[in-house]
């Protein structure tokens, strides 16, 4: 059985002029436990909206979203929040670390919403995960004193500290240089594989998408398989020579239009 299952999911956004903007027009997606799925798409294609729906931060306008086989449209707000904390770990493009809290406090923050032993031992748990991402020595540093790569590693540690079943990464390398981004993605892939968590990455970077077992392209509100390994390898090889890391853009980006 799929861990996450979207069927015909639509998401429309009302605009100030009274019209409706269709963001997702019928997305079908299944994610199995431990699977790594990547979704690529241009800016404004609805990638983040899809991720927010998966992470129970947003709700579909129509369609079905099953979590562990349970329809999510009937979940009460409180249970949605609890499931969000227990099932999902989020990694954001801009890291979104809590300012003026140390790395350890940031990593421990999700455990403030846990229960029982997990809450009480949050400090120790945070330091263990920071050790795992190689930042044990910097646990007491505030984010402002960490490099971009270190901040994203703290964010990854934070996403994993509650041992989520799914890690949702929204442009995890978007604010990093190529090399740092590659190292961060390698770490993220490795750790989620270790813990058995599914990883859903949305990105506009083909080389990031290339790390996933399954890849999709989101275009015009629809999800379609991205089956062009030759293109992917060509793009990444041309960029780095490694065949894995690159910044090739998906789809035809009009000149002058910067990716998000």
């Amino acid at each position: 059985m799929s861990l996450l299952s979207l069927t015909g999911v639509r998401r429309e956004v009302p605009l100030p002029d009274g019209s409706v903007l269709p963001v997702l027009t019928g997305v079908d997606l299944d994610v199995a436990p431990g699977e790594h799925v990547a979704v690529v798409g241009r800016s404004g294609s609805g990638k983040s909206t899809l991720l927010n729906i998966l992470g129970l931060l947003d709700t579909p306008t129509a369609g079905a979203y099953l979590l562990d086989g349970e329809p999510t449209d009937r979940l009460r707000a409180r249970r949605r929040a609890r499931l969000r904390g227990e099932v999902f770990g989020f990694v954001f493009q801009q890291f979104n670390l809590l300012p003026r809290r140390t790395a350890a406090e940031n990593v421990a923050a999700p455990l403030l919403y846990a229960r029982g032993r997990a809450f009480l031992t949050r400090g120790r748990a945070a330091r263990e995960v920071l050790d795992r991402v190689g930042l044990g020595a910097r646990a007491d540093q505030v984010p402002e004193r960490l490099s971009g790569g270190e901040q994203q590693r703290v964010a990854i540690a934070r996403a994993l500290v509650r041992r989520p079943r799914v890690v949702l990464a929204d442009e995890p390398t978007g604010a990093l240089d190529v090399e740092t981004g590659a190292r961060v993605m390698a770490l993220l892939t490795e750790i989620t594989a270790e813990t058995g968590a599914a990883l859903v990455t949305i990105t506009h970077d083909l080389s990031v998408a290339a790390l996933a077992g399954r890849r999709y392209r989101l275009e015009a509100g629809l999800l379609a398989p991205l089956d062009a390994p030759a293109d992917l390898h060509a793009a990444t090889a041309a960029r780095t020579g490694t065949g894995l890391v690159g910044t090739g853009q998906v789809g035809a980006v009009p000149p002058g239009e910067a990716p998000a």
């Binding site: 931060l57 929040a81 609890r82 969000r84 999700p110």
Partner: peptide, 16 residues
């Protein structure tokens, strides 16, 4: 607001 949004992603409900 951003911080509150992040806390929401940790599982914080409206009441919390």
């Amino acid at each position: 607001i951003r911080e509150i949004g992040v806390r929401r992603s940790f599982g914080a409900g409206s009441g919390r």
